[in-house]
Simulated assay, not measured.
Amino acid sequence: MQHDIDAGTAGLDGLLNPPLSRRGFVMTSLMSGLTLATTRVEAQVIHTDASGVTAGEVTIPAGDGPMPAYRAVPEGAGPFPIVLVIEEIFGVHDYIKDICRRLAKAGYCAVAPELYARQGDLSTMTDVKQIVRDVISKTPDTQWIADLDATASWAATSAKGDPARLGVMGWCRGGRGAWLYAAHRRDLKAAVAWYGPIGGEPSAIQPRTAGDVAGEINAPLLALYGGADTGIPVASVEAARDAAKAAGRSVELVVYPDAPHGFHADYRLSYRKEAAEDGWRRALAFLKANGLG
């Protein structure tokens, strides 16, 4: 699998910088419950049990130590297609864990690594601005991309995952990650981006946006966005789709006209049941249609 990882870096000059020195892990285990950093409903709307799946916290060997993660995989021999789950900015909390179980129930080996474990303890943070300033903006793209590569390798060797059937799905900031990871991995079969930012202000450690790499994606991408998202203009997503199409790449864009940002997050007031359920059905059908059946 190393060959595929190396090959996946081609064409990403400006995204993959020389290796940066890594810091120790601040979070050595995942948070319990839901994030403290956003207004929540009383409880999650959806709770998926673990019957028929093996689910729980694991540690994944990263370049500088064990990285906490959550994995859910169907019972049975496998191998099962792998879906890398990229969290929102709030960490791998109960909502993200539930998504992994939902995917496992659908037949996938789903793994969500805590990609911000080195930058801060998200379980204690209550201020969204602090998370963005102290954690998100200080996490190099090279770091989380390498961590996803490590997660894919671990899933194939330790979690009954099939390395020949690899996909990625991300929410919010993780939706941006789905675009960038699709431009990184040549062996990726499919990507699903739930309302991931398309633009943004580049920095030395985050030099390219999702829009910048739209024409370089290596796998079909399903883009699920809200028409009432005040932070992501639909026109910017349409421009990314068009750039991909012009480069011979495939982006399927679905816009839910009345849905705000975070419409799939069933623990928040932004949740929109109809859009979330339709998007989930489309996401599963998209994975299967693109070699992850």
Rank of each mutant, 00 (worst) to 15 (best):
H3D: 14
H3S: 14
G8E: 01
T9L: 07
G11I: 00
L15F: 02
L20N: 08
R23P: 00
R23A: 15
R23Q: 14
T35W: 03
A37T: 09
T38S: 09
R40Y: 06
A43G: 04
T48E: 15
S51G: 11
A55V: 04
V58P: 07
P61T: 12
M67Q: 09
A69Q: 03
F80S: 02
G91D: 11
K97R: 12
C100P: 07
R102E: 10
K105R: 12
G107H: 08
Y108P: 03
Y116Q: 06
A117K: 03
Q119A: 15
G120C: 12
D121V: 13
D127K: 14
D127L: 13
I131N: 06
R133N: 14
S137W: 13
K138R: 15
A150H: 07
A156I: 07
L166P: 12
M169P: 00
R173L: 10
G174A: 04
A178T: 05
W179G: 05
R185K: 09
K189R: 15
A190I: 07
A190C: 11
V192L: 11
E201Y: 00
A210M: 12
I217Q: 05
L222T: 00
A228Y: 05
D229N: 12
G231S: 09
P233E: 02
A235C: 03
A239M: 04
R241T: 10
R241V: 09
Y256L: 07
Y256K: 08
P257C: 06
F263S: 08
R268A: 15
S270C: 14
S270A: 15
R272G: 04
W280M: 08
W280E: 11
R281V: 04
R282E: 06
A283D: 05
L284D: 09
A285V: 06
L287T: 03
K288N: 08
L292R: 02
L292G: 05
